[in-house]
Design a protein around this nucleic acid. Sequence first.
DNA 1: CCTAGTAGTTAAGTTGGTGAAAGAAAATCA
DNA 2: TGATTTTCTTTCACCAACTTAACTACTAGG
Lengths: 139, 139
Amino acid sequence: MTAQLVRDLVDASARYRHELARRLGVNDHEMQALEHLAREAAGPAELARLLEVSTAASTGVVDRLSAKGHVARHPHPADRRRTVVELTDDGRADVLTHLGPMLGRLASLDADLDDHDRAVVHRFLRGAVEAFDEAGRPT
Amino acid sequence: MTAQLVRDLVDASARYRHELARRLGVNDHEMQALEHLAREAAGPAELARLLEVSTAASTGVVDRLSAKGHVARHPHPADRRRTVVELTDDGRADVLTHLGPMLGRLASLDADLDDHDRAVVHRFLRGAVEAFDEAGRPT
DNA sequence: CCTAGTAGTTAAGTTGGTGAAAGAAAATCA
DNA sequence: TGATTTTCTTTCACCAACTTAACTACTAGG
């Protein structure tokens, strides 16, 4: 039961990402990158690890997002090998506009919890992340 | 905070699926299909909706899983347009072997909850699914 | 300081996706 | 009932986006 709900959540989030990607005119990987970049800038290598694709593929992701004006490449201040990929102002506005309704709903769900229940939910979510990570740990 | 944990869970599940797919020698879509078929049989059209790809693509998914011996096509008993795709015995054994450790961890997480806390977690998960679905509802 | 490792890109080749078209069966409806 | 529309599956031609390998540039750790 609980496991099924976790599965449902994962499926729902995938459908949601796909729909958002469609609205923004990007593909699923590009959308996932945009979601991450809305929280913090990252280089192609870091995006590659996040998306679980090669760095060659993530270079392509950044190329396409950049061509569409959603992101821009900047030099890394301290490491001259690196490139910092950041949302442009337009890109940030687009992403936050589309992400907002979902974040709002999650926030109101969170606001309905009292302190005890919030702790229970957090503990569960952290445990579930650990369950996936441990079970998926390369043997 | 809570929203970030939900995001973390979604990311962890994607990493997990990718790792399992690697172990079974299939790609992510094929793995997702196998996970679904472990719960219930489905036709190519249903799998296409689940994976959010065209039915042409899901025909390919079934072709490849079938060629590897993980699934088999059967005629639908009541609808002669349809094909029922089912795990083979070997396929089921493979999938359950690999899925087991994660399900076990989730089950023990669930077992640690008392009735009140379990209800809280279930309500939260259902709410989160609804948040994604509502926010992603085609306008 | 030199070796090993990391970041990013390009190139060539492969995988797996799409859209369109088609055939067959089921569902809807006048 | 018969006509029309919808659904299910598959095939085909095409192409988007991935992979691996190679290479440059730079950093970090004995």
